[in-house]
């Protein structure tokens, strides 16, 4: 019983992480129709910047995490401007931007290696101490992640549904010309979507930097998981993406408990292939 509850809590932590990562991917997909392969690298940038500000400059983890979030958002806007926007009206936009965002990932990872070196780094926990959830002890920092993730998701959802600025991102994703004729600046909407998504990745990285080690390639595993999540949930619907994130988190936690760390990725990818074969629009995808 205890093991079961511990697995549930561990799934909740993983789910929160994946929800934050995949909601950003989903936002960029619904607005620009682009899959951003540099999303994981942006997460890594958030963690490194947070570490530098907090530990090297000594400004503390809160300022560090905020700086990491902002820095990743800014780099996201730059990536959109330089590597995505030139290909908007290209017929092969999806394929080209897959390559250019992969290039961005390589540049960011190598750049981080040059700037910060290979030595493992870690951020101090935002909140010290431990918390009991369902009889399982986890760090208060992980508990914060569990609480923060749904709050951020709800804020993001409210933004895209309740505010005109947020609605404009959905509008641009569905019909660019019609959006433009209502006075919506399409390139601004694209940059905003990319920036918010990258900032979310940076925030996730900065929060993860106290749980895992900060390395130049720390983003690739969460990106892979986020890809599985968006395939599971279907791209384009924030609610379905978030639901799939927690589902994958729980499945992963139970697979690790039952099968061990080694076989878990195999089973997850097998699940992804099965979903692609039988429910190509996602488990929750309608159309």
């Amino acid at each position: 019983m205890d093991a079961l509850l511990a697995t549930l809590v561990s799934g909740l932590v993983l789910g929160s992480l994946y929800a934050l990562m995949s909601s950003g991917l989903s936002l960029v997909w619904t607005t620009l129709g682009v899959f951003n392969f540099s999303h994981g690298a942006l997460m890594m940038v958030g963690a490194f910047v947070a570490w530098t500000i907090s530990e090297v400059l000594g400004l503390g983890p809160v300022v560090g995490i905020l700086s990491g979030t902002l820095a990743a958002g800014l780099i996201g806007v730059i990536i959109e401007r330089l590597l995505v926007r030139p290909f908007y009206n290209n017929r092969n936009m999806l394929l080209i931007t897959a390559m250019t965002t992969l290039a961005a990932m390589v540049i960011l990872e190598r750049g981080a290696q040059m700037i910060w070196g290979a030595r493992l780094k870690q951020l101090p926990r935002l909140v010290p101490g431990e918390v009991q959830i369902l009889g399982t002890t986890i760090s208060a920092h992980e508990a914060l992640l569990i609480v923060l993730a749904p709050l951020i998701l709800v804020a993001l959802w409210r933004f895209t549904v309740m505010t005109n600025r947020g609605r404009s991102l959905r509008a641009v994703g569905q019909n660019q010309d019609s959006a433009a004729l209502l006075g919506i600046d399409v390139p601004v909407a694209f940059a905003l979507a990319f920036g918010i998504s990258a900032a979310l990745a940076g925030l996730t990285g900065a929060l993860l930097g106290s749980i895992r080690f900060i390395t130049p390639t720390m983003g690739s595993e969460p990106l892979t998981k986020a890809m599985i999540v968006v395939i599971f949930g279907g791209l384009g619907n924030l609610g379905a993406t978030a639901g799939a994130a927690y589902l994958i988190g729980f499945i992963e936690a139970f697979l690790i408990f039952g099968l061990g760390l080694y076989w878990t990725p195999f089973v997850l990818f097998l699940l992804m292939i099965l979903v692609l074969l039988f429910r190509p629009n996602g488990v929750f995808g309608g159309k």
Partner: peptide, 24 residues
């Protein structure tokens, strides 16, 4: 202001929010 021909607007958006958005 230009209301284009055969305008499909935004299929996954509700009428009320589409109108509110149009006052951009």
């Amino acid at each position: 202001i230009h209301a284009p021909q055969g305008n499909t607007l935004f299929g996954n958006m509700r009428i009320a929010e589409t109108l509110e958005l149009a006052a951009f």
